[in-house]
Each structure stands twice: as C-alpha cells, then as structure tokens.
Simulated scan of single mutants.
Amino acid sequence: MFDRDIYSDLQHRLITNDFDHGEKLRAEQLKRDYGCSASTVREALFRLSTEGLVDFQEQRGFRVPEKSAAVLAELTHIRILLEGEGTVLSIRQGGVAWEARLTAAHHQLSHIEKRIHASEDPTDLVPLWFQAELEFHQTLISACDSATLKAMHVQVYRRFRQQLMIADRSFDFISKNIQHHHAIMVAALDGNEDLTRQKIHDHLARHLGGAFSAQAAQRFKSSAM
C-alpha cells in the first residue's frame, strides 16, 4: 500500500545526504525505521526509482545512484535550458504578482546565504538553505504557465541536488551564490530576457565539466537565439 508520508520522507533523505552514493537501500531496515511493512517501503522505492532518485536492478535490489560527473553535467545543462525558458516565459506573463513573489523568495534565500557565509558552522542552516534555494529557482519559473516544464524541472532539480548532496555542504561557493542569485533576480525584474538566460547559465556553469561544458555552451547559445 502506498504511503505518501514515507515516500516524501525518503525522497527528502535521498537528496539531503542521509544516504551515501551507491548505498544499498534495504527494505527490511527501512521498514523498521518507519514501522511499516516491507511492501510499503518497496512501493515507495519503486516510485522513487521512476524519478531517478533510486537505482533498481533485479537480483541487486535498490541503491542510491552513484556520484557521476557526466550525470551532473547533463542534469545541469537540462536545468539551464528549463530555467532559462521558464523564467523568460514568467517575465512575459507573470506581472507584478510574480515580481513580488520573486523578490520575496530572493530576500529569504539571500538572508540565509549571508548567515551561512558569516558562520563557522552552518550545519543548522543547511535544511533552511536547501528549501530556500529550491523555492527561489521554482519561483523563477512559476509564472511560465507550463505544468509540464515545472514538473520536469523539479524532477531534474532533485536529481541534481542528489548528485551534490555531499559536495555542496562545504559551502565554499556561497559568496558567488549570493552574487549570482542577486544578478538573476535583477535581470529578471528588469525584463532582460537574454541577460536572464546568461545569468542562469553563469550560476550553474561550474557544474558543467570537460567536453560537455563546451558542447553545452554551444547548445545554450543556439537555444537563446
């Protein structure tokens, strides 16, 4: 029987460093964690495997996906395309209400990032940052009027975040993040579509690696024309 609370909690744990990359997800252990049947856990894991957050193979069972530079680069490129297109559509269609939501989402994220930047141990701020960062990027595309684009974005975002669930906890990127998020917001509020696409690309470009980086840059230029 499907249990949405167990599914949601597992989904959250899978993208916030509660499991290691490549770790086997044992239904017997998880059923004890949640006080439910093994079949309930398996149903949640099967659903999560359709989202790419869990790998499933016959005879091997369920595992957390391995960390992969190639997968991260691909997910990053897709994020750039989806967020660029979604934000441009929001600029055209969102109006004052969307601008107000974007300003509020940025204010919350900026406040948390500045506190992280000033903190020697930002551990307690990590859950707040995860949520605020997602909300900011979701708000960028929230007025695009495409349920399909938004659904694809959140699925890609979760897989992207899972790939970075360990690396991002060092927060050595946070000062640039503060600048990048502000630049994206300003460009979007100014209605500058080309600059907004470019700032979104610049924000995520550090995750594009090697040959894929050059290929993705060319695709970005083509998609923006």
Rank of each mutant, 00 (worst) to 15 (best):
T123I: 11
T123Q: 12
L125A: 03
L125I: 09
V126I: 15
V126S: 07
V126E: 10
F130H: 11
Q131M: 07
Q131R: 11
Q131A: 12
Q131Y: 02
A132K: 06
A132W: 04
A132H: 04
L134R: 13
L134A: 08
L134W: 12
E135T: 07
E135H: 06
E135D: 13
F136V: 07
H137R: 09
H137N: 12
T139L: 06
I141V: 09
I141T: 05
S142P: 02
S142I: 03
A143K: 02
D145F: 04
D145N: 12
S146R: 03
S146L: 01
S146N: 06
T148S: 08
T148E: 09
T148R: 00
T148N: 04
T148M: 03
L149N: 00
L149K: 00
L149Q: 01
K150A: 01
K150F: 00
A151S: 09
M152C: 07
H153G: 01
H153N: 05
H153R: 03
V154H: 02
V154C: 02
V154M: 00
V154F: 00
Q155R: 14
Q155K: 13
R159N: 13
R159A: 13
F160R: 06
R161L: 12
Q162K: 08
Q163R: 11
Q163M: 15
L164C: 10
M165R: 05
M165H: 05
M165K: 02
M165L: 00
A167W: 12
A167P: 00
A167K: 12
A167L: 14
D168V: 06
R169W: 00
R169C: 00
R169I: 01
R169M: 02
S170Y: 10
S170R: 15
F173I: 03
I174G: 09
S175G: 09
S175C: 10
S175I: 11
S175N: 13
K176P: 00
K176D: 15
N177Y: 10
I178Q: 09
Q179H: 11
H180I: 01
H181D: 13
H181L: 05
H181P: 01
H182N: 05
A183Q: 12
A183S: 15
I184R: 02
M185T: 14
M185D: 05
V186H: 10
A187G: 10
A187L: 13
A187R: 10
A188V: 08
A188W: 01
L189G: 02
D190G: 14
D190R: 15
D190I: 08
N192Y: 09
E193L: 09
D194F: 05
D194P: 02
T196P: 06
R197H: 10
R197G: 01
R197S: 08
Q198S: 14
Q198G: 04
I200T: 06
I200F: 07
H201N: 07
H201V: 05
H201C: 08
H201S: 04
D202M: 06
D202I: 03
H203I: 00
H203N: 07
L204S: 04
L204H: 07
L204Q: 06
R206W: 03
H207G: 04
G209P: 00
G210E: 13
G210T: 04
G210M: 04
G210N: 11
A211L: 11
A211N: 08
A211Y: 10
F212W: 12
F212L: 05
S213V: 01
S213L: 06
S213Y: 08
A214D: 14
Q215V: 11
